[in-house]
Amino acid sequence: MKAIHKIIITGLMLFIAGGFIIGCSSTKHKYTSATTVGEEFNIEKSGAQLWGEACNRCHLAPSPADYNDTDWSTISLHMRVRANLTEHDINKIEEFLKSAN
Rank of each mutant, 00 (worst) to 15 (best):
59 H>M: 12
63 S>G: 02
30 K>V: 14
44 E>K: 05
5 H>N: 06
90 I>H: 00
17 A>Y: 05
100 A>I: 04
74 T>D: 09
6 K>Q: 07
101 N>Y: 10
19 G>R: 01
56 N>K: 11
72 W>Q: 00
84 N>A: 14
26 S>T: 14
78 H>S: 13
50 L>K: 00
58 C>T: 09
78 H>V: 13
101 N>L: 05
14 L>K: 01
49 Q>G: 02
71 D>R: 00
92 K>M: 13
4 I>H: 03
31 Y>P: 01
79 M>I: 08
2 K>G: 15
14 L>I: 13
95 E>Q: 13
37 V>M: 05
60 L>W: 07
34 A>R: 06
83 A>W: 02
59 H>E: 02
42 N>S: 13
81 V>C: 01
32 T>F: 10
93 I>R: 00
61 A>E: 08
93 I>Y: 00
93 I>K: 00
80 R>D: 04
41 F>G: 03
85 L>Q: 06
82 R>C: 03
20 F>N: 02
57 R>Y: 10
28 K>S: 11
70 T>R: 05
3 A>I: 07
15 F>C: 13
76 S>F: 05
70 T>H: 07
78 H>Y: 10
92 K>C: 03
37 V>D: 07
76 S>L: 09
37 V>L: 11
59 H>K: 10
46 S>M: 09
27 T>A: 12
100 A>C: 04
12 L>V: 13
58 C>H: 06
53 E>C: 02
21 I>Q: 01
35 T>G: 01
97 L>M: 15
3 A>Q: 08
25 S>T: 13
84 N>Y: 10
95 E>F: 08
69 D>K: 14
10 T>A: 15
49 Q>R: 06
43 I>N: 04
100 A>L: 07
39 E>T: 11
26 S>A: 03
73 S>M: 10
36 T>G: 02
67 Y>E: 05
67 Y>D: 04
6 K>R: 05
61 A>Y: 04
50 L>I: 12
23 G>K: 03
82 R>K: 14
32 T>R: 04
44 E>T: 01
65 A>Q: 14
44 E>F: 06
31 Y>C: 03
75 I>R: 00
56 N>V: 11
32 T>K: 04
27 T>P: 00
58 C>E: 01
4 I>K: 10
100 A>W: 02
72 W>G: 00
17 A>I: 12
59 H>V: 11
37 V>I: 14
9 I>F: 11
82 R>H: 14
10 T>I: 08
67 Y>C: 06
9 I>S: 05
20 F>S: 03
17 A>G: 04
75 I>A: 10
89 D>Y: 03
57 R>W: 05
14 L>Q: 01
63 S>Y: 12
52 G>M: 08
41 F>I: 14
